Simulated assay, not measured.
Amino acid sequence: MFQLWKLVLLCGLLAGTSASLLDIRGNDVLRKLQSGLERGLDTFDSTLETIFQNLKTELEFRCSHEVVEETQETENLLEQLISRIFQVVYSLTGVRIKNVQVPDITFEASDNGADVKIPITADITVNLPLLGEIVDLALNVGLQTTVSIEPDTETGASKVVVGECPNNPESISLTVLHSRFGLLNNVVDIGVNLARRVVSSVVQDELCPRFLKLLESLDAECVKKLIGKSQPGEVERRLPPQPHRGWYAALCLQHQQV
């Protein structure tokens, strides 16, 4: 009887004006998120700036050595920062983004400096009105920019120059793991679209600005060491992914191939 009631409700959501309620609710969620992003997520969680400063200190510590040491602490702090950001997003939107992983960070030498890339994976559960949490997704998003060392036109000293952090639709991949109650594609698509728009807003207004701010805060000598002595065309400097994360990548690949 309970399952039949759910089926009737789902059919109603897909019929007439009921189907548009999910879109209307989604727009309300996005407006609330945008308002929060404009205020700054630090106003909701004071620990974000603390974690950011710890991350900056960790990178500077690594740069204090003749040879930059590769440690897992940088990835751990990045994961903490991104996880806290997504916790605030959940409180604003009802879109739960958890199990954040940063498999590796790369500095790949180029003609003018280096291409910097931070891949992020996570799990998403979308909470739709009346139905509760019903669509589970796997998220892959890649943050990237360029960094170079250039002479200051006034002082002649070296300075760090950071490029843009493009928010391309292709950089956000969402894979449906499963949906509950046997939802029809129309409702699943609404959940996926809502998740994509939430992630895109967070990337543009929160993750990318913090990513650029972190690189800009480092001194020129530190950035030189992070880039290393690689010349264009050589193998990139890569912080190796941790073995214990291999199961997650395999799981994502499995679902993408289905």
Rank of each mutant, 00 (worst) to 15 (best):
I172M: 09
L78G: 01
L9E: 11
L81V: 01
R237S: 08
E221D: 13
P103T: 11
L10M: 14
E70T: 11
L143E: 01
I51Q: 04
G182V: 07
A138I: 09
L215V: 04
D28Y: 09
A250Y: 01
L174A: 07
P240A: 15
V203M: 12
N54H: 03
E49F: 02
G246D: 14
S230L: 05
F211M: 01
V188K: 03
V88A: 01
R31W: 01
K225N: 05
Q53C: 03
Q242P: 14
V102D: 04
K229W: 03
L55K: 03
I85E: 03
P151I: 04
S158G: 08
L7N: 12
S35W: 03
L37V: 05
E236P: 15
T153Y: 14
G191R: 08
S83A: 11
D123E: 11
D111V: 09
P166V: 07
V160I: 11
P240V: 12
H65A: 14
I24P: 01
V88W: 00
L130T: 14
R210G: 00
Q231K: 15
D219V: 05
G12P: 13
Q87S: 11
Q204W: 09
H178C: 08
R180M: 06
T74L: 12
P243M: 13
A157G: 09
S35V: 03
